[in-house]
């Protein structure tokens, strides 16, 4: 493990916990895309099925379990406990337009044509675009709460750090996973516009609002 890998994981964890605490403390999921959170729950579920087949380390297992538990807790808060605050009218991204093509792609391009590997590949492809319902919602409402932007920042930062980790592992460990790297590049590119707004607005104390 290297510093980029570890800080990537911690950034990912920070994002998940920030979102969960935001919803819990404010007793509201206003401005959060429930569909996006359903996609992330699906991403973790399909990727971490390897918990049942292989053991890597205590760190690996516990982080995977924490990610899964937090993502399901978030979905529960949005669709059950604080359903009244869920802004469904603005959460109108058609997720089938992501899930179906990504499902097809994972059958066509993978490392091994086995159920677990296809599901894991599916999760990597899906994760790369799973933020789109949330970004779509922000573009529809034209604004985001500052705490929501912190969530998005850490979620985007995590994959960027993982890309540096991939370069590191290529040079120092000789391993390279083209699928993970290409998906990681796509994922990071999707955040670039947001990163720009975050740095130029939110970090200067302004609320993130888009021009009408």
């Amino acid at each position: 493990m290297n510093i980029f890998w570890l800080t990537g994981d911690l950034s990912h964890l920070a994002a998940i916990v920030i979102l969960l605490l935001k919803i819990w403390k404010t007793r509201s999921c206003a401005g959060i895309s429930g569909k996006g959170q359903l996609l992330f729950a699906l991403v973790f579920t399909t990727r971490y099925l390897d918990l049942l087949t292989s053991f890597i380390s205590l760190y690996n297992t516990s982080m995977k379990l924490i990610y899964i538990a937090c993502s399901y807790a978030t979905v529960y808060l949005i669709y059950m406990k604080f359903k009244a605050t869920y802004d469904g009218n603005h959460d109108t991204f058609r997720v089938e337009f992501l899930v179906v093509p990504v499902g097809g792609l994972s059958f066509l391009i993978n490392h091994d044509f086995s159920p677990l590997e296809i599901l894991c590949t599916f999760s990597i492809y899906l994760e790369s675009v799973a933020i789109l319902p949330q970004l779509f919602m922000i573009s529809k409402t034209g604004e985001a709460e500052t705490i929501t932007t912190h969530y998005l920042f850490f979620l985007g930062l995590y994959r960027a750090l993982y890309l540096v980790n991939s370069i590191w592992r290529f040079y120092f460990e000789g391993c390279f996973d083209l699928i993970a790297v290409v998906a990681g590049v796509v994922q990071t590119i999707l955040y670039c516009d947001f990163f720009y707004l975050y740095i130029t607005k939110v970090l200067k104390g302004k609320k993130l609002s888009l021009p009408a």
Binding site: W5, D9, H12, R47, D50, S54, I56, S57, N60, M63, K64, Y67, H111, D112, E117, C120, T121, I124, Y162, N165, S166, R169, C175, F176, D177, I179, A180
Partner: peptide
């Protein structure tokens, strides 16, 4: 070949 990275990475 299995995607090694995606199983030890999160």
């Amino acid at each position: 070949k299995k995607s090694v990275l995606t199983h030890d990475e999160l």
